[in-house]
Nucleic acid binder design. Structure first.
Length: 324
DNA sequence: GAAAGGACTTTGGACTTTTA
DNA sequence: TAAAAGTCCAAAGTCCTTTC
């Protein structure tokens, strides 16, 4: 399907080949946004903006203010934004604040938060309630566990929806999702928006229907290749990229606050796996370590492994895979 | 209402083929 | 010959329909 009246987004290009490439958020205010949403660009909307509420936008003061979060939030309110920040640095807060402001600005509008798994959906609905206090009376989490008929009814009565991508795609296609009332769509784990994944299809359908809405995409790992990231940007109609890594000046000071949990585990996990006693476990363990040693030496020499110490590598791998 | 099975997607590893 | 690119397949996750 051809994208309706749009050229390829080139958001990523601004980041390629520049030493400190961070696009500055445009200096726009709510009035400008209001104009954007309601002037004749051929798009239609059933949602009226609350002009009084839209004179301001709100940001929580019950959390320590982080400048990068504030800055990204401001950008995300007024343009379709892909936010890339490391895990644990507050994407949830940014999403919650954007959702809350659209909730305020559009009294009849509907806001959708999409996450690729049911646990993430449940987690986000709680976080949103805690951060900005959107009443749970207005919110609902909808996954495939809820029948399409029930979902059709919920789309009519609720305003803030936490859904899986498949539910969003199916309900848009079936027409049960009231797309004419959609004002804001937040997409978690946005790096999945490739090919015909439900994220891509859903946004494509919304754009084809000329729905006016703000899109906020979130990811900690947008993709390893430029082409993949660009495809995400294209598929989600992103116009602004907000990228931060742990070395950025405005992020660095918060990185050390993250908790690191040191877990010490016994060396007898082989025995647990195989149901053998401790002595046999040690013997098996020693043989495995011996077998791994030449490979570890070689991998260390070419910089793949940080150490030649096979025991360390062995236990790190098992920790990483949550084996125990 | 719960369980099973099918369909669909992406990801990542293993393997093969191509190219410099 | 080594690196890059392409292909295939299994795994994991989702939703939907059917069956009991």
């Amino acid at each position: 399907m051809k994208k309706p009246g749009s050229s390829r987004q080139t958001t990523l290009d601004k980041f390629i080949g520049r030493a400190c490439p961070r696009p500055q958020p445009e200096s726009r205010d709510v009035e400008e946004h209001n104009r954007d949403c309601n002037e004749g660009d051929g798009r239609v909307s059933s949602v009226q903006i609350d002009t009084e509420a839209a004179k301001t936008w709100m940001y929580p003061v019950n959390f320590p203010r982080r400048d990068y979060q504030f800055s990204i939030t401001k950008t995300a309110l007024f343009s379709n934004t892909l936010v890339v920040v490391p895990t644990g640095l507050g994407k949830t807060l940014i999403a919650a604040v954007v959702m809350y402001n659209y909730f305020r600005w559009f009294p009849d509008g509907k806001i959708v938060f999409a996450a690729p798994s049911r646990p993430l959906v449940v987690q986000q609905i709680q976080a949103c309630h805690n951060i900005v206090g959107i009443s749970q009376e207005w919110t609902i989490d909808m996954t495939g566990q809820i029948s399409p008929t029930k979902r059709a009814s919920l789309w009519k009565t609720k305003r803030v929806f936490f859904v899986t991508p498949q539910v969003l795609e199916k309900d848009i296609q079936s027409g049960t999702c009231s797309i004419e009332y959609l004002v804001c769509l937040v997409i978690d784990e946005a790096h999945r928006a490739l090919g015909n994944y439900s994220y891509s299809v859903a946004v494509r359908e919304l754009m084809a229907a000329q729905v006016q809405l703000r899109i906020l995409a979130l990811s900690a790992t947008p993709g390893s290749k430029q082409q993949a990231v660009q495809q995400v940007i294209d598929n989600l109609y992103i116009s602004t990229l907000e990228y931060r890594n742990e070395d950025d000046a405005d992020v660095k000071k918060y990185v050390h606050n993250r908790e690191v949990e040191l877990i010490q585990r016994k060396k007898t996990f082989v025995a647990i796996i195989l149901g053998r006693n401790g002595q046999e476990a040690v013997e098996i363990d020693n043989k495995l370590v011996e077998a791994m040693r030449p490979f570890a030496t070689r991998l260390c020499a070419i910089g793949v492994l940080p150490t030649r110490d096979v025991q360390t590598v062995w236990f790190q791998n098992n920790l990483n895979s949550n084996f125990l």
